[in-house]
């Protein structure tokens, strides 16, 4: 496990965090606006999915 791997692990962490915060935040805002409860969960799952897709694009393909 070299230095590059360590940097990659932290940038994966960053992508996941920003995915959850951004799309979860959008879901939370929709919930506040419409008075519902489900957009937050949907947004979190969407954000995690998008972030994992991004991680696959960046680190998973050859």
């Amino acid at each position: 496990m070299g230095v590059k791997d360590e940097g990659a692990a932290w940038s994966i962490f960053g992508y996941l965090l920003s995915g959850l915060i951004f799309w979860g935040g959008v879901g939370w805002a929709l919930d506040q606006w419409l008075g519902t409860k489900y957009f937050l969960l949907g947004g979190l799952i969407l954000g995690a999915g998008a972030a994992i897709y991004l991680v696959w694009l960046r680190f998973g393909r050859e």
């Binding site: 994966i12 959850l20 979190l44």
Partner: peptide
């Protein structure tokens, strides 16, 4: 091995961050 390890790490880390976010909201 590298892509497999990083994808596995991403999946495991996503669960930890789910917990972190849900603990706050």
């Amino acid at each position: 091995l590298q892509p497999i390890a990083f994808l596995g790490f991403a999946l495991a880390e996503a669960l930890a961050l789910f917990g972190l976010v849900l603990a706050f909201v």
